[in-house]
């Protein structure tokens, strides 16, 4: 059996567990859709790299589905904001139709990004570099470890420290 068939059969066996994962994350109403989305990815996307444990691979795919769902929400919000901006411009010659203009999401996002950057700068250089290599240069934990000449567990510790600090500083 090749790897993608193995993944498909593992998916069928673990379907209920994956559904339970999404139910715990977003509630039962949306969970079924997300399992379906995961199924589509298993069926249509080529397998990247070696699959050591098909079940763990599927859970990681679920994690990616959750992240992509957030990304889509964000770009939808950005599109809505752009639509409002353009439509406000259209009435700019007359009066503003609406008195309380909705807060500009793009400005808020940019402000939060500035705070993330400032928070990152608080951290010691090795922690900051670990975060950047993994997050922005796409290196895996073990590649970052090799790059910096440290252990993989130290890379994970640095990643945890960076994220804890960012989230504490920037908030929700």
């Amino acid at each position: 059996m090749n790897e993608s068939n193995l993944l498909l059969s593992t998916f069928m066996q673990r379907r209920a567990s994956l559904l339970r994962y999404f139910a715990a994350r977003v509630g039962e109403a949306e969970a079924e859709d997300l399992v379906q989305e995961t199924w589509l990815r298993v069926a249509s996307q080529p397998v990247v790299g070696e699959v050591r444990n098909p079940a763990a691979y599927l859970y990681r795919l679920c994690g990616n589905v959750m992240l992509d769902r957030l990304r889509q929400e964000r770009s939808r919000a950005a599109r809505d904001a752009e639509w409002r901006r353009v439509n406000r411009t259209l009435v700019a010659n007359g009066e503003e139709v609406c008195e309380d203009v909705p807060a500009d999401n793009a400005l808020i996002a940019r402000d939060r990004l500035r705070r993330i950057r400032a928070a990152l700068d608080d951290l010691p250089a090795p922690v900051r570099q670990t975060f950047r290599l993994h997050k922005f240069e796409g290196l895996s934990h073990s590649e970052v470890a090799a790059e910096l000449g440290v252990s993989r567990s130290l890379v994970e510790k640095h990643m945890m420290r960076a994220l804890k600090h960012l989230i504490a500083r920037v908030g929700r």
Binding site: L67, R112, I116, L163, V170
Partner: peptide
């Protein structure tokens, strides 16, 4: 909340 911060940092 951790995931949201992770996604937000994409744009850094």
């Amino acid at each position: 909340a951790v995931e949201r911060l992770w996604i937000e940092s994409d744009d850094l």
